[in-house]
Structure formats: structure tokens, C-alpha cells
Simulated assay, not measured.
Amino acid sequence: MALAGLAAVGTWVCAAVAQQGAVVERLPRGRLVAAQFAAGAANHILPAGAGAAVVNVRFLTRCGLSTRRSATALAVKAAVGGIVRCVLGVALLVVAPGTVRLPVRVPHGPVLLVPVLAGAVALTVVPTVARNGRLGRAVTRALADVRAVHRCRARAWALWGGSVGFALLHAAVVVAVVRAIGLGLPVSRVVMAYLVASGAAALLPTPGGLGSLDAALALALTAAGAPGPAAASAVLGYRLLTGWLPMAPGLVVLALLVRRSAL
């Protein structure tokens, strides 16, 4: 449980690194980490990540960015986080093919065709949208911000590396809690359970994923081979370290940041 707690603390640092990577300007490090800690607490009050979004937009605007650029930075960070989870899941399936056993064999051809078609649609739709009116100008400016971030190697490494670290450390919290309660599940199955559950919970607008992530993670751990009561205990331990224990200190930090005009 001590290792799980250390991993939980590391998630806020990785969130700060990824947020720094989403903007070209240098952000104050201490306040950036504090803002991510406060955003985690706010995220458990408002649905669908709105709490964290409000805190981060306010923080970035206080650092001199416009509201548009702040919103773009959050969108880029969220998109990279989703891509990272998908890539980690695919990489895990390649490295450990027995992690997930599908009841029906799916042909590789149609599966590989999906991302190709998605890429073709994106290449067709995005330039078309970019040529049309106000929305087109907004998309053009957003793409310019994304290109500016990726032209700076340090920012690109921070954005992608912080996002990878954030996902892996959250998975590490689940792995450590599973070990603490004596479950002998393979690490690869636990990590996959977290990746699948966090992706599913993102589709349901509940505050901090409460309820949606809990149910999805418990179901995923049960599907990975954990008994129902043990899966529920693992979810409770994960929630305790990443949500409930940091809630009160996070709200205190949020109030201090507001009082000091950092938000």
C-alpha cells in the first residue's frame, strides 16, 4: 500500500509534466504541480472532468495564455492521453498475447483497416473544416498550437512522456493494491483491466469517474480472474489512494491557490 501511495503521488507530477508539454510557454513548476493536485479534488465534484478543466484553464490564463489557447492545451493533453491508453493496450496485447482471450477470432484485415479509414477521413475532413468560416479559423489556430508544441522537442517529450507516466502510474496503483490484498493476478491482466476500465469510464459523465470507473474496474478485474469481493476491495483501495484521501488536502490547496490569485 505504501508503494501504491507513492505511485498515486507520482500521477500528479506526471499530469503537471504533460500539461507543461501541451504549451510552449514555461509554467511555474511548483504552482503547476499544486494546480494538478487541486484539479484532482475539483474533478470529484463536477462531472466529466469539468472540475479539472476549470482549474487548469484558470491556471493557464493566470499564467498569461488566452482562454482559447488554454482550452486547446487541455484538449491536446486529453487527446494524447486517450491515444496513449490505446497504444499501451495494443502494446500489452503484443507483448503478452494471453492477457485477453477473445471468444471469437477476429480477422486481422478488417481490424487493421479501421485505423486506416479513420486516418483517411481525418485527412479529408480536417482540411475541409479548416476552410470554412469561424470554425475553420479556430481549427487552424488549434493545429498551429499543436505544431508549435511538437516543434519543440522538450515540450513534445514532456507531453507524451507525462501522459505515458500518468497512465502507467495509475495502473501501478491498481497493481500494488491488488498485491496488497493478496490477489495473484498477472501484472499484465491488471494493467489491461485498468486501461479498459478507464477508457470505458471516460464515456460516462460522472464526477471523477465515481461509479462508472468503479463498476468498470471491478468488472474488468473480475473478468481477469479476481473473485468478486476481492475485486471490490481492490477498487476501494485504488479509490482511497487516488480520490478520497487526497480530497480534503486538494480542496485546501485549491483554496490557497485562489487566495494567492494563482487561479
Rank of each mutant, 00 (worst) to 15 (best):
P127W: 03
V13E: 02
A16Y: 02
L46K: 11
R153S: 08
W12A: 08
R58C: 04
P229I: 03
G165Y: 03
A224C: 13
C86M: 12
V87A: 10
A96Y: 14
P205I: 12
L93W: 03
V114H: 15
R259T: 07
A35P: 00
A148R: 15
L74A: 04
L159F: 08
V104G: 02
P97I: 10
R189C: 02
P227N: 08
W244R: 01
R189K: 15
V13L: 11
A226Y: 03
C86P: 01
R151N: 11
H44E: 01
A41I: 04
W160A: 05
A216Q: 11
R147Q: 15
A197I: 14
L6Y: 11
A197F: 14
L27F: 14
R147G: 13
I45E: 01
A4P: 00
A79C: 10
V116S: 09
A48V: 10
V235F: 04
L217E: 06
L254G: 03
V253W: 02
A193L: 12
P246K: 01
A22N: 02
G208D: 05
A215I: 08
A231N: 03
N56W: 13
L3K: 09
V23S: 07
A34V: 11
V87K: 07
A22E: 06
P207F: 04
R85S: 05
V106G: 00
L221Q: 01
N43V: 13
V111T: 10
A138P: 13
V187H: 00
L74R: 01
L169K: 06
G89N: 09
A53D: 05
P186C: 05
K77H: 14
